[in-house]
Design a protein around this nucleic acid. Sequence first.
DNA 1: AAAAGGTCCAACCGCGGCGAG
DNA 2: ACTCGCCGCGGTTGGACCTTT
Length: 177
Amino acid sequence: MRKPCCDKNGTNKGAWSKQEDQKLIDYIRKHGEGNWRFIPKAAGLLRCGKSCRLRWINYLRPDLKRGNFGEDEEDLIFKLHHLLGNRWSLIAGRLPGRTDNEVKNYWNSHLKKKLISKGIDPNKHRVARRQRTSIVHAHQPSTLPDLNLTLGTSNGAAAAQGSIEADHPSPTLRLFI
DNA sequence: AAAAGGTCCAACCGCGGCGAG
DNA sequence: ACTCGCCGCGGTTGGACCTTT
């Protein structure tokens, strides 16, 4: 049995209050992100580090774009999911201001149903989880690689080809499906 | 008007990878 | 080479809100 990520005694759970949000925002504005395990204590929050990280990334970050997804975003999610499967963080990385959680929720509540209504199995291009890291680590947030997509969907068939190339010093990544 | 069912989204959970020691 | 702790990820859940009957 794995140890819990933090001491669950004396930590709050559930919805965040405005005061908690403000404490976290103030702390990160002053000191920046990083060391999530230490942040709750330093910011005076009775939360576990993971909870703080999630709250910041999914809700409090100033560059977040709230509201409905546009048609272009929806289209891009379709294409990227076809290429990458359930790699929500990678998909979200191509959508400025969107989080992996937001993309995942939108997929599960809207896009999945659209695919099913068109007779397309939304899971058939799923990529095994164990293949994840080789791709994630070639993808540095500040140096997003160019992504080229060619996608044939005229009859709903799974004809897709894509490539991701990173022309920075880290190893070049190419992904063909 | 109210109960039942459905939808959506914020938040939690547990796992796997990675780096430090 | 191995262990341990942290971080980030995808899957899942709980409950608030909305729609239908």
